[in-house]
Write a protein that binds this DNA or RNA. Structure first.
Lengths: 145, 145
DNA sequence: TATGATGTTGACTAGTTTAGTCGTGAATCT
DNA sequence: AGATTCACGACTAAACTAGTCAACATCATA
């Protein structure tokens, strides 16, 4: 498993900011409620995202979180790597050691990994926000019918 | 991380059988020595591989392990799934539930996962054995020069 | 400048997974 | 019978995951 709840929640938080962050900061509690994320846990994820430079926060009343850049300028690859660490599917792919006692399957996984990163780099938070809006729309429609 | 030492060791064990299993059963101790796998741990992996139908074993003197089929007929995908369980990079990809509260990134990862399985299915133990022979050859050459 | 709303941080925890070890037993060959 | 080899379940230490909690820092505003 490469992506756990960290990566899932963290990305959802950024999507939330992309969707609702246009008129001022968004508070943790709102994000947590809308995205079904335990509030105390979200704290840590937002801290990671802030340290990685994706969001900035302001304290005090009317405080909250905002993206530091346009959602279109934040790609999924970088976000996931900030949240989960390396996405390498097997340990030996992290070190460029070219170790002589390499695992036999390395070359297959190296290709898979490279491909994976290309795909993830091609997806932005804006793309995900669009999908999310569509999903919410369909959900609303299915209830109202 | 999708592949741990289990997947690495287990595949190496099968490659070892592919390379040295032509004249009778190969013993655990030999595999463990050649592949640098803790013997007691290798037991468990061989048991898994036997239960999954990739190897058969015979006890007693001159006993050991053999592949049940030609190395060319055993693909990496099935071996890894037998050893590691599901290779899904994120949890929601395992259930075909089409859950309505899906994670936002699901579609990207679904594509990556599908691609990964195709690549892994295209590689056989015979392919890996060829590579391994090449690697050992080059290693020997580099020492003798 | 006091107050309360808000984010920040580090310590802590329960449960799970990983990577093994160990001991006993079962089968088989000579 | 005795040596050799695999079989299997119990056990363990360390790391990781997914959180919780409490104390603290900062800021807007009345």
């Amino acid at each position: 498993m490469i992506i756990g709840s960290k990566g899932d929640y963290g990305v959802r938080a950024l999507i939330d900011l992309a969707m609702y962050g246009d008129d001022g900061p968004v508070q943790r509690t709102e994000i947590a409620r809308r995205q079904h994320i335990p509030e105390a846990y979200l704290d840590h994820l937002l801290a990671q995202l802030r340290r990685a430079g994706f969001v900035r926060s302001t304290r005090g009343p009317q405080g909250g979180h905002q993206l530091t850049r346009s959602p279109a300028a934040i790609c999924l690859l970088h976000v996931l790597e900030a949240l989960e660490g390396s996405l390498a599917p097997m340990p030996c792919l992290d070190h460029e050691d070219e170790d002589s006692t390499v695992c036999a399957q390395q070359w297959v996984w190296r290709e898979i990994y490279a491909d994976m990163r290309v795909r993830l780099a091609a997806v932005s938070m804006a793309d995900l926000a669009v999908r999310e809006r569509e999903r919410l729309g369909q959900l609303a429609a299915s209830y109202s019918i």
